[in-house]
């Protein structure tokens, strides 16, 4: 790479130092920006966030977490749905009327748009299923899963 710039060794080194300084400055700026965005860029809040700093009732928020085992209750007409969302530390009750994705199920991640009502129940207007990072064939899907690890990797923000 250096075959043709031999006579200009010095300015080349100067440019290399300049480039390295610039790269360090860019990385520094990027990390600063990312850490400043840390809370703003979160796609959803967790039940712990709601427990720590309850948002005003009626303010639109997005809630994410795991659907607690055995918590899904369907209304008699089949359209209403109530369940509990957990992040392992806190829980939030959620109510929803509508169609949920196929992958929405107990002990699986979900994300809901909506707001808290006066009683502290999260009234969802839309529900998305969150897929986790595990992929396996169907016969393995019934195997016992590492619950703690799953909550840690899918719901809890790693800070």
């Amino acid at each position: 790479m250096t075959t043709q710039t031999k006579p200009r060794l010095k300015p080349k080194h100067q440019r290399l130092v300049l480039a390295l300084i610039a790269i360090v400055a860019i990385i520094g700026a990027g990390l600063l920006a990312a850490s400043a965005l840390r809370d703003e860029a979160a796609y959803f809040v967790t039940p712990s966030d709601i427990a720590a700093k309850p948002p005003e009732p009626g303010v639109a928020i997005r809630l994410g977490g795991m659907v607690e085992k055995g918590s899904i209750v369907r209304s008699p007409d089949g359209l209403g749905l109530a369940f509990v969302v957990t992040d392992g530390k806190a829980t939030t009750r959620v109510a929803f009327r509508g169609i949920v994705p196929d992958l929405f199920r107990e002990e699986s991640g979900m994300v809901a748009d909506g707001s808290l009502n006066a009683e502290g129940t999260f009234v969802a207007t839309r529900i998305l299923a969150k897929h986790d990072e595990r992929y396996m064939p169907p016969q393995l899907g019934t195997m016992p899963i590492d619950r703690d690890n799953m909550v840690g990797t899918t719901v809890e923000p790693k800070r």
């Binding site: 990312a34 965005l37 840390r38 860029a41 979160a42 796609y43 959803f44 809040v45 967790t46 994410g64 994300v111 998305l128 969150k130 897929h131 986790d132 990072e133 595990r134 992929y135 990797t153 899918t154 923000p157 790693k158």
Partner: peptide, 12 residues
Amino acid sequence: VVWWNSLHQGPS
């Protein structure tokens, strides 16, 4: 997907 809560799953 590690820094922020995201819909996309974490690294597999």
